[in-house]
Amino acid sequence: MPIRLDFLQTIPYFSGLNTAELESVGRNIFEKAVARGGLVLVEGENSQIMYLVVNGVIRCFKTSVEGKEQILNIARPGESFNDVTVFDGRPNPASAQAMGAALLYGLRKADMEFIMRQYPPVSLNVSRVLATRIRQLMSLVEDLSFRHVIGRLAKILLEYATDSQAIKPRLTQRDMAAMAGTAREVIGRSLKALAEAGAIRLDHHRIVVINQEIMKEMMEATG
């Protein structure tokens, strides 16, 4: 399939490029289809490839020596992952797995460097994108360091419930545990606590946030 220029146009890295320039960028990109559960990247291995999510959802995570996962990011269509490896040439900082069938665009380090040399505005875009990413990761560090599990879970659920994006993958308790930096067992207890506080309702396969104010109070009270 030809690389979609209308998609590339929406990627912050390529903001401001004209059609001819986007076509040039497209010639340096390759397509990769991944099945549900497919491992795109393994933490610590060398790939030096950045991926853009065209469709599907990718879970980026680190694994502790005890085997506990910490989700760093869930990349949705239009978002990228493993970006840093094309800039510093070092191993993959995290593993990446498809949460459903996904289509990705890949960009190798040498090709990204060619694009940045060829089109200097891309370098400025790169600094903006990476600055945004640093802020997101600083927020994650704060969450993991200072908030108790119930507060962290309340934040995750509230963000998911109020996220207007069309594609919202369902989360198992294991996913929530990985996102909150805790064990699955703790999530079960925390969900019950949130339900008892009147913040959420467990409606079979659905977690319904019924009182956003209480959720915010739980986030702050446990901070």
Binding site: A161, P169, V208
Partner: peptide, 24 residues
């Protein structure tokens, strides 16, 4: 009744009970 006990005990990851998360 989506108690998720089956997911909790499955060591091979063969069964999962994913939640949809929505606002009221």
């Amino acid at each position: 009744d989506w108690c998720t006990e089956c997911e909790a005990v499955c060591s091979s990851g063969a069964i999962s009970c994913p939640f949809e998360i929505v606002a009221e």
